[in-house]
Write a protein that binds this DNA or RNA. Structure first.
Length: 488
RNA sequence: GUCCCUUUCGUCUAGUGGCUUAGGACACUGCCCUUUCACGGCAGAAACAGGGGUUCAAAUCCCCUAGGGGACACCA
């Protein structure tokens, strides 16, 4: 085994990148980077029937989105390519032949019908379900005849029943399987393609993979893989089987219960940092009480030893919180840049960068998603056309009409239109009229934003600007009866 | 059914025999701050699946039971 750590994420293009797959890729990546090793993407496209168009592109795109850099893989050639299994068929065939020659594999001509019946019988008789080795007993002549007759066949591996296969899982410790419980796995399908088990072992060997970090669903086939390594006389890599991501009901995470495809998250407004941070914590923790991490910090902290054994439920509430944490850590300018295209789409592209950044500054701590700046606080960009009915009822009382009118006049006269000066206008007016400032503040907020919640009013006024604020206040004054009547 | 894995607050988790009246975070509740909503601060409720051992001492080690999950394809 080479000194440099080499790990791989090896998805099958039978669907789009699963959020659990993204976590597996991330753990591999973190491990590689932590150890100064290589992260390889290998496409396991040996199932021609289930191939999904666009899946590979989706993997690449989402990995890139997540900030997971591929050192070797499709489109990024390395010394051990190609990185599509469908382009490595000869390799598998040669090695299968070798296994056959050495008696570690055998021809099987059983039809799927027969296999189905066999399994049904085994199930009924409460026997462990495995191939019954009918074809292992075929004479060389019978095999030759079948071959000559072009009867479809598969190659199965011959598992020694009298031994046990044991391995040390980096996460689970010692795991042991009795040879008698290991099935004579199909290695080469009747279409000539290898199964996962064969191809995966051969590729991991030739790609010099040092650590196989994959989902827990693979533990039970690991002994088969180890046997294959032994048959070929190869070193066995280290194994680490990750706990599964679970639905709320603790079943394996699947559709129906929330979004399982990674690509569903960016459009919802989840930040790369948040998703990466969140999934990194699903089964791993740094050992102290920090929870917010950048990719670089994760790379620094990550270790396989600190991976949990039990499956984790994907808890969207916590993701949301982590998203808010990362929003706050971003500069106003970063957020501005992320918002740019949405701004254009909404027709708000005329607003100066400085203005939008000020709005961002005021809203950053109040939003869960960046796009909420455009939805929940559209009043930064357009005059309100509706007024929160409950707010109107409670705050837009008759005296407000006069107050708004007067305040608008006073604001208009202000030379320095900033927080303190604005606040002064309100406080002074309140004192003069012997009323509480809140009797002014609430109607004003409603008048200029249409809603009852938002940033501190004086900051809001300062950012939105004199002209707009005064216009909106006067609009409400002139439509006061209409506005206060509507919500009846 | 067979094999394998797993089991600490609702959820993510800390805990590797004494430091633990089991810690943190999300969510939840209350209070404070406050012009609103958030933020923030403080407080609260909330867990070692059960039973046996081992030990002076167990959430931590062992065994059994139960629950959960995964695998059992010519899918990965």
């Amino acid at each position: 085994m080479s000194d440099t750590v080499r790990v791989r994420y090896a998805p099958s293009p039978t669907g789009f990148l699963h959020i659990g797959g993204l976590r597996t890729a991330l753990y591999n990546y973190l491990f590689a980077r932590h150890h100064g090793g290589k992260f390889i993407l290998r496409v396991e496209d040996t199932d021609r029937a289930r191939f999904v168009e666009g899946a590979v592109e989706d993997f690449m795109h989402m990995l890139n989105w997540a900030g997971i850099e591929i050192d070797e893989g499709p489109g990024r050639d390395g010394p051990y390519g190609p990185y599509y299994q469908s382009q490595r068929l000869d390799l598998y065939t040669n090695h299968a032949q070798k296994l056959l020659n050495e008696g570690h594999a055998y021809y099987c001509f059983c039809s799927s019908d027969r296999l189905d019946q066999m399994r049904k019988f085994q199930e009924k008789s409460k026997l462990p379900p495995k191939y019954d080795r009918t074809c292992l007993r075929l004479s060389p002549e019978a095999i030759k005849k079948n071959l000559d007759d072009h009867i479809p066949f598969v190659l199965r591996m011959k598992v020694p029943h009298d031994s046990t296969v044991q391995f040390t899982d980096l996460i689970r410790g010692e795991v042991e399987f009795a040879g008698s419980n290991i099935d004579d796995q199909v290695l080469v399908k009747s279409d000539g393609y290898p199964t996962y088990h064969l191809a995966n072992v051969i590729d991991d060997h030739y790609m010099k993979i040092t650590h196989v970090i994959r989902g827990e669903e693979w533990v039970s086939s690991t002994p088969k893989h180890i046997l294959l390594y032994r048959y070929f006389g190869w070193d066995v890599p280290q194994f680490a089987h990750l706990p599964l991501l679970l639905n709320a009901d603790r079943s394996k995470m699947s559709k129906r219960q929330g979004d399982v495809e990674a690509r569903a998250y960016p459009p919802k407004g989840y930040l790369t940092e948040a998703v990466v941070n969140f999934i990194s914590l699903l089964g791993w923790n740094p050992g102290d009480e920090r929870e917010i991490f950048t990719m670089d910090e994760l790379i620094k902290e990550f270790s396989i030893e600190r991976i949990h054994k039990a499956g984790a439920i994907f808890n969207i509430e916590k993701l949301n919180w982590i998203n808010t944490q990362h929003i706050r850590r971003k500069s106003d300018e970063e957020i501005y840049n992320m918002l740019k295209s949405d701004l254009e789409k909404s027709g708000y592209s005329d607003f100066p960068k400085q203005y939008v950044m000020s709005a961002i500054g005021l809203m950053k701590e109040r939003i869960n998603f960046i796009h909420e700046l455009l939805t929940f606080s559209s009043y930064f960009f357009r005059d309100p056309d509706t007024f929160d009915p409950d707010g109107v009822k409670k705050r837009m009382l008759p005296p407000a009409k006069k107050h708004l009118s007067e305040l608008a006049d006073r604001l208009e006269k202000l030379d320095v239109f900033q927080h303190n000066e604005i606040e002064n206008v309100f406080r002074t007016y309140a004192e003069e009229n012997k009323i509480k400032a809140s009797e002014l503040i609430h109607p004003t907020r409603l008048a200029i934003s249409g809603v009852t919640l938002g940033p501190g009013l004086f900051d809001l006024i300062a950012v939105i600007g004199k002209e707009t604020v005064v216009r909106r206040m006067r609009y409400v004054v002139s439509h006061f009866d209409q506005i206060t009547k509507l919500p009846a």
